[in-house]
């Protein structure tokens, strides 16, 4: 445990701030889903958001890439900064923002098109690729980073939906990183997968954090403990505690966190 803490501090030196939420509140109509949360996410490490169902962790995640904009009754107050940019600034184009913040969903959701086109979609709509060769390179690079290249390199033209569940989710990760985002948001990415596929995704996160800042929402505390460097515990829309993962799980400062991580609540 002490070891975790030491690594945290040594790496903390060059840990620039990637995302910063300040007094963020999200309401759906009259329901307050996220209450006045301030949270700092540091670059190139995995931050896990844990908490019982309905605690606002997914809403918080979706506030980061403004997916909540799609819900007409949703009102967001406060500020979220990506680097120097305030993402709720009216001048920010949400399409451009989402190119910098990729997202992986709970259920694998590949498009009903070829594996190749699935990965190429993001770079294409963002105008990052001009001709076939650039697209080919980017597709291969993304699939390699997602650890899927060796399994699909001979069948890039086959439908993305023909893959197994775990492969589909890795395809979705490849798709999310194809446009070179800074941040990858993962909303319970393993909840629909079997333990072996889950282990592969977790290994993958370990590799990806060298390049990307990862924010993962998970219901599995073991997963949070395995993959994340820092953990934030949400309860009833509030941020109860945030700290180094080992610290949160073994020596929580708040009684509610203790109750949750020891299984007495949630």
């Amino acid at each position: 445990m002490t070891q975790t803490q030491t690594t945290a501090t040594t790496e903390g030196a060059d840990n620039e701030i990637c995302l910063e939420a300040r007094n963020l509140s999200v309401r759906y109509g009259k329901v307050q889903a996220v209450k006045d949360i301030s949270l700092v996410v540091r670059a190139r490490q995995v931050t896990a958001l844990i908490g019982p169902s309905g605690c606002g962790k997914s809403t918080f995640l979706r506030a980061i890439n403004r997916m909540n904009d799609l819900i007409p009754t949703c009102v967001v107050q406060g500020s979220v900064r990506l680097g120097e940019t305030e993402i709720y600034d009216p001048a920010v184009e949400v399409e451009a923002l989402r190119a910098r913040i990729g997202m992986v969903f709970q259920k694998p959701n590949p498009f009903a098109t070829s594996i190749y086109n699935n990965v190429a979609y993001g770079p294409r709509v963002q105008g990052l690729v001009r001709h076939r060769r650039e697209t080919d390179e980017r597709v291969e690079k993304s699939l390699r980073r997602a650890g899927l290249w060796d399994e699909v390199k001979d069948r890039l033209k086959e439908s993305g939906t023909s893959l197994s569940g775990g492969q589909q989710q890795r395809l979705c990760i490849a798709r999310a990183i194809a446009a070179d985002p800074e941040v990858v948001l993962m909303d319970e990415p393993c909840s629909a997968l079997d333990p072996i596929a889950t282990a592969r995704i977790e290994d993958l996160m370990d590799e990806l954090r060298a390049r990307y800042t990862i924010v993962i929402v998970t219901h599995s505390m073991q997963q949070a403990a395995r993959v994340s460097k820092r953990t934030a515990f949400f309860l009833l829309g509030e941020l109860v505690e945030e700290g180094a993962t080992g610290e949160v799980f073994t020596n929580p400062q708040d009684e509610r966190t203790l109750n949750y991580v020891t299984g007495r609540m949630g």
């Binding site: 997916m67 989402r98 190119a99 969903f105 959701n109 979609y121 709509v125 979705c172 798709r175």
Partner: peptide, 10 residues
């Protein structure tokens, strides 16, 4: 989730 997948890619 199909719509969301596309929108999340920008």
């Amino acid at each position: 989730n199909l719509r969301e997948a596309a929108l999340a890619l920008g």
